[in-house]
């Protein structure tokens, strides 16, 4: 296995990379505020649900970006299984954290929308059920990680669970087409007034930037934690007699 320590050391321009990612994060935040204001001020109330329609500007971008994050989990997990680099496992874990948060946000906002629209908070129909399964698989994924101490074993188990979890993404996406659901099918520019499509797209891009920033931030801190752990281990192994290990 390639040492994370070496990897962190060779990734020399860490500082400039950090500045770059901070720029992405700030850009995302500014765009998110602008897109929300744009959406609230310019889009008319829907003829059935009125301003309840505005929930779409967070619910849908959160769902899309959660799927992107889980796609990243799948790619990083696959690459870990292929190459065995611990850094890929840490990237998968970082993306899983962000994806789980966004899925939770999607579910919560969906319920808040569902109560006044459908008349119920929740029902076990295919789209809702598959999304809940997706959410809880990644909760389990993150819990699993805290239970395994050995980094390499944790990475192997996580990669398998992460891949299984990510397998749910196409199922969640296609559920409204494959099966007869209470949840509507995906809207398209054909079924969405243009006054709704642009705020939706702007919010999706803004949240994507924030998602990328969050994953990068968690990945960087995970790399540093791993590096610190490895250095501690080395120190412990060399263990000068009488030396402090704290």
């Amino acid at each position: 296995m390639e040492s994370v320590v070496n990897r962190a050391a060779t990734a020399a321009p860490m500082a400039s990379r950090e500045v770059r990612w901070t720029t992405v994060g700030v850009a995302g935040l500014v765009l998110l505020v602008a897109a929300q204001v744009y959406g609230v001020l310019t889009s008319p109330p829907d003829r059935d649900m009125g301003h309840l329609q505005k929930i779409m500007y967070v619910h849908v971008p959160a769902a899309w970006n959660a799927m992107l994050a889980f796609l990243l989990v799948a790619l990083a997990s696959l690459r870990y299984l292929w190459k065995g680099r611990l850094a890929d496992d840490l990237l998968a874990a970082s993306a899983a954290e962000v994806g789980m948060l966004l899925t939770g946000l999607t579910l919560a906002l969906g319920m808040i929308w569902g109560k006044p629209t459908w008349g119920i908070w929740w029902t076990w129909e295919p789209r809702l059920t598959s999304t809940a399964v997706l959410f809880f698989m990644f909760v389990a994924y993150l819990i699993l990680r805290t239970f395994v101490d050995d980094a390499e074993r944790r990475a192997q188990w996580s990669a398998v669970v992460g891949l299984l979890g990510a397998l749910n993404v196409p199922i969640v996406y296609m559920s409204v087409r494959w099966w007869r659901t209470l949840h509507q099918m995906q809207s398209s520019p054909m079924t969405l007034d243009s006054s709704y499509t642009w705020p939706l797209r702007a919010n999706a891009v803004a949240l994507m930037l924030l998602m990328a920033y969050a994953v990068a931030h968690r990945y960087r801190s995970a790399l540093m934690t791993q590096t610190a752990d490895e250095l501690m281990d080395r120190l412990a192994l060399k263990g000068t007699p009488g030396g402090s290990r704290a």
Partner: peptide, 10 residues
Amino acid sequence: MIRHSEEYRA
């Protein structure tokens, strides 16, 4: 329960 379609119109 209401089943809303995928259409959103002003």
